[in-house]
Amino acid sequence: MNAWRQLWKNRVAKTSLIVLGCVVFCAIIGPLALPARYAALTQNQFAPPSFAHPFGTDLNGRDVLYRVLEGAQISLLVGISGALISFFVGTTYGLIAGYAGGRADSLMMRTVEILYSIPRLILILIFINAFDSHVKQWLAGHGWTRLIDYSKILILILSLGLIEWLTMARIVRGQVLALKSQQFVAAARALGQSHAKILTRHLLPNLVGVVVIYLTLTIPAVILDESFLSFLGLGIQSPKASWGSLLSDGAQVINPIRSNWWLLVFPALVMSATLLALNFLGDALRDVLDPRTRQSRGV
C-alpha cells in the first residue's frame, strides 16, 4: 500500500503510531502480566513514586500504574467502539442524504443543524443517567448477568457513538454530492445498476480516505467525552477506572499540605500522549489521503 509507506515516512505519524502501539500493548498486556499484588488494596496509602510503585499508590493503596493501565483499557474501548458506531451512523446518514438529494436531503440536513444547536453532552449526561438502571434490568432479565457490571460502559459507548456522528454525516454528504455528478456514477446508472450497488460499489470506495481521517479524529473526541463524563462522576465509577475517573480522583485529593501530584500527573501524561498521538495521526493521514490539503496544511 502506497499510503502506508507514505505514512511511515512521515516522522510525526511514525512517532504517533509507535506511541499508540505502546499504549495499546501495555493496556492489553499490563494488567495480566503485572503480579497480583499490584491490583490488591493495601494499607500503603498515598505512597510517592518508588521502585516498587513507579507511579505511586492511591487512596486505597492501589498501584497507580496498574490503575492507569486498567483505565486505558476502558477509555480505549469506549473511544474505539464509540467512534465505530458514529462511523456507521454518520456514513449511512450522509450517504443517503447526499445520494437522495432534493427534499429528503434538505430535511435530513436541517435535522443535523438542529441537533448541532443542542448542547449534546448535556443531553447525553441526562440520557445515560436515566437509562443506566433500565439497561441493568434489561440485561438481568435476559440472563446476561455477566454484563451487568459493564452496563454503564455499554451505554456510554452507545450514546457517545450516537451523538458524535454529526460531523461525519456532513462531510460524507458533501463528498457524495460532489461525486454523484461525476461520469462514472452516470455510467453505472446507465448500465442499470441498482441504487444500493451504486452506493456501496462506486461511491463508498471513493469515500474511504475522508472517512478514515475522521474516524481517527473521532476516537480522541469520544475518549475526551467519556473522560469528561467520568470526571464529573457521572460516567465510569470506582472500582472501575477510566482516565477521566482517575483524574477526578486525583483532583479531589489535592490539598495545600500534600499535593499527591502523582495521582494527577501520570494519568494526565498517558492520556494526553494518547490524545496527541491520535490527533497527529489524523493530521498526517489527512496529508496522505486527501490530496487537496497536501500543499497548504489547513487548520
Binding site: L247, I254, L264, M271, L275
Partner: peptide, 29 residues
C-alpha cells in the same frame, strides 16, 4: 496550540492549581 487543543480542560485545570496555587502560591486554589 496543538498541545493545548489535545490536552483536556480537566487536566490543565488541576495542573494549573498544582503549579500556581500550591507550589508557587500566587493565586487561590
Amino acid at each position: 496550540a496543538l498541545f493545548a487543543i489535545s490536552i483536556p480542560t480537566f487536566v490543565i485545570g488541576p495542573l494549573l492549581i498544582l503549579i500556581f496555587a500550591l507550589k508557587l502560591q500566587w493565586l487561590p486554589v
